[in-house]
């Protein structure tokens, strides 16, 4: 698909970078606050290891478990914040200012999201991975980086599509905080943010590997820690790609339908 009016989206990308950088400290703090969940998980798993007296649980030592959760925080911070933006735009009626321009509203949001991701990657993820890599040996090679790049591409697409689908609901119900919170919890849980997916009972673990969420943190962290072999990684990528394609079709159909349903409260 050829991207028409690509310069418009480049404009939104650049302006979002400028906007985020106008409050550098505030932005850095928002990004850093994403470490909060991993700190909680570190305390929880420290208690679990201490209570069980085991040095290793499901192949994870206590140090590799710490590394898992810090890496998970870094990777999962690369998701776009789209649905709250859609809700704000719909609620305030400001969505009209985008719809009167020769641009696609979803692509405009995606361009803004990519700009924020670039900043998150440079300010948070890259330094974070380097720091963790200096403490815990990571599986960094050209082949693993190539696989990781594909995994990140699929992750970004999947996370954006899921967030778009939630965000589109705002055009029907306006307030979607409840759905956003439920989905945030489900995504953290199903993508391995509370427990590595391999530690679930075998049947459940296999089922979870067939869902898109395994590509939203778990597979990337396992790749970095060298805990998954190439064939398992390829299988996970294939599942993620299939989900990406399916969700893209659903999101496209939903946006086409939503456009006809748009209403504006006053003014």
């Amino acid at each position: 698909m050829v991207l028409r009016n690509g310069h418009a989206y480049l404009g939104y990308f650049i302006t979002t970078l400028k906007n985020a950088l106008s409050y550098r400290l505030g932005y850095a703090l928002v990004v850093l606050s994403k470490l909060g969940t991993s700190l909680v998980m570190v305390f929880v798993w420290t208690a679990i290891y201490a209570a069980s007296g085991a040095h290793e649980i499901g192949g994870y030592t206590v140090v590799s478990m710490y590394a898992y959760f810090f890496l998970f925080s870094l990777i999962s911070s690369m998701d776009m914040i789209i649905s709250p933006k859609i809700q704000n735009d719909v609620d305030s009626g400001n969505v009209i200012t985008y719809l009167v321009k020769p641009i696609s509203y979803p692509l405009q949001l995606f361009s803004e999201g990519l700009a924020e991701l670039l900043l998150t990657f440079l300010m948070f993820v890259l330094p974070g991975v380097i720091i963790i890599g200096s403490v815990v040996p990571l599986n960094i090679s050209w082949s693993s980086l190539a696989l990781l790049s594909i995994e990140m591409f699929v992750f970004i697409a999947l996370a954006a599509l899921i967030d778009f689908l939630i965000g589109f609901l705002a055009f029907y119900t306006t307030r979607i905080w409840g759905v956003i919170n439920i989905m945030s919890f489900l995504i953290i849980f199903l993508s391995g943010g509370i427990m590595p997916l391999g530690l679930f009972p075998s049947g459940i673990s296999k089922a979870l590997m067939l869902l898109p969420f395994q590509m939203m943190g778990y597979t990337q962290v396992e790749t970095l820690l060298g805990l998954l072999n190439v064939s398992a990684i390829m299988q996970n990528i294939a599942v993620g790609a299939a989900w990406t394609f399916a969700l893209f079709i659903i999101a496209l159909a939903m946006w086409t339908m939503t456009k006809k349903h748009i209403t504006f409260a006053g003014g």
Binding site: N5, H7, A8, L10, I14, T15, N19, K101, I103
Partner: peptide
């Protein structure tokens, strides 16, 4: 900056 953005949007 918004004016610059419009330069991109409308080429």
């Amino acid at each position: 900056d918004t004016f610059e953005l419009m330069r991109y949007v409308y080429n």
